[in-house]
Design a binder for these strands. Structure first.
Lengths: 218, 218
DNA sequence: TGAGCTTATGCCACTCAGTGGCACTATCGC
DNA sequence: GCGATAGTGCCACTGAGTGGCATAAGCTCA
């Protein structure tokens, strides 16, 4: 579909300075995830990371806001694509959950090659590192608030209120988190993107039953 | 109903050493919330807090795990009561959402006098402090996992699967967070416990509509 | 191609959260 | 009261994150 080609073209059109910045950024993410995976998020020190990449600590903090930030870079990439997709996606009062879900599948598809390995490493780390869990949840919550603001603006005044929009999104995100859990805890051979999509379908398939349970005692 | 009397009796029966620990703990929470509210979570330094309470920094970290921990103490208190309530609450496969909700109302009632002021301060801080938002969400997520483990064990094998149990709980928690948002952003005169309960009812009342939206596009 | 502007980087010193270790003091059980 | 058993204070240390300033690298226009 030429997506990758487009990205390369974009990259080539970027001025040298920007390309260098992106290159060190990518190097930082890669080596950080490598070191965190080999050892552990808490034991790996920032100095080890910047020494390995041969940049100063100062440069690290101009690229990332914190040690957690670099470890969650793949996740942030995904959510950025999600927001972009939602912004340009046709919406209607009904089939909202469908739109929420479809945007996530679409965002997933937009990730470049190699993203899934980084994302898997990032998620595995987050599952066993409290500090990363916390940062991940906060980012997710910020994105949710943004998405609801966008969607509410688009459906201005129409059918579902803001609270409904948000609860529905949170419900989908809850399912997404179950899917992630299943994915990261599955055997290594089943940790590619297709498997993640399967887990997402399974988790989303549970939602109707939950809706029934929720409806039966208002 | 004599609940408060019981608590006082319990406190009196505690050995002196324990009572002292509780006293400094309470002093730390109170002054920390005071200072954070007067200034700001990030600008208030740990030394200021421990100087005001006249304990050493070392003692602070024997009582709390982090600076965030002390700021979220009222919230943790509530969730501890929630888990305790769930553990001893009769459960059935149907009316699960009802049980989740009722346990929260029950936990709220068990909080001692003065709790709501501390909780309000804590929540207001959390709303405008990223680090606190993150820690709060993580704690909530850990409690969720625990609650589902408990409930799943009690309903072993029965009707709803673990995923359904978790998604339903997450849905309730999403509503709870909306209620909190409404409560903390309301005018000061409407920030007592009764008002919080009203906001909870309002938020929970939205769930059926969300269930309908979720059911219509599986 | 080079002068001059702009922007990223490196380096240094600093603050502050959090930890480990050890001596000290207060409580408890008898 | 007298050992045993805590909790506390003090001190030195690591490691994350920030501010400031000099330097180097990339960009722009002649």
């Amino acid at each position: 579909m030429g997506r990758l080609g487009l990205v390369q073209k974009d990259a080539k059109e970027l001025p040298l300075r920007e390309r260098k910045k992106l290159r060190t950024r990518q190097a930082l993410v890669d080596t950080a995830l490598e070191l965190f995976t080999a050892q552990d998020f808490t034991t790996v020190t920032l100095d080890e990371i910047v020494d390995a990449v041969e940049v100063s600590k100062r440069t690290f903090f101009r690229t990332f806001t914190s040690k957690e930030d670099v470890a969650l870079a793949p996740e942030k990439e995904l959510w950025a694509a999600y927001v972009t997709d939602i912004e340009s996606r046709p919406l209607s009062g009904e089939r909202l959950l469908g739109a929420y879900k479809d945007a996530l599948f679409a965002a997933l598809e937009q990730m470049t090659d190699g993203w899934e390995q980084r994302f898997l490493a990032s998620r595995s780390l987050a599952d066993r590192t409290p500090a990363l869990t916390a940062h991940s949840l906060r980012h997710c919550s910020e994105v949710s608030a943004n998405v609801v603001r966008i969607v509410a603006g688009r459906l201005a005044g129409q059918s579902p209120g803001d609270t409904e929009l948000r609860l529905l999104l949170d419900l989908m995100l809850a399912a997404w988190h179950r899917a992630l859990e299943a994915w990261t805890s599955s055997e290594a051979a089943q940790q590619d993107r297709a498997a993640l999509v399967r887990h997402m379908h399974e988790a989303f398939a549970v939602i109707p039953a939950v809706a029934a349970l929720a409806a039966q005692d208002g």
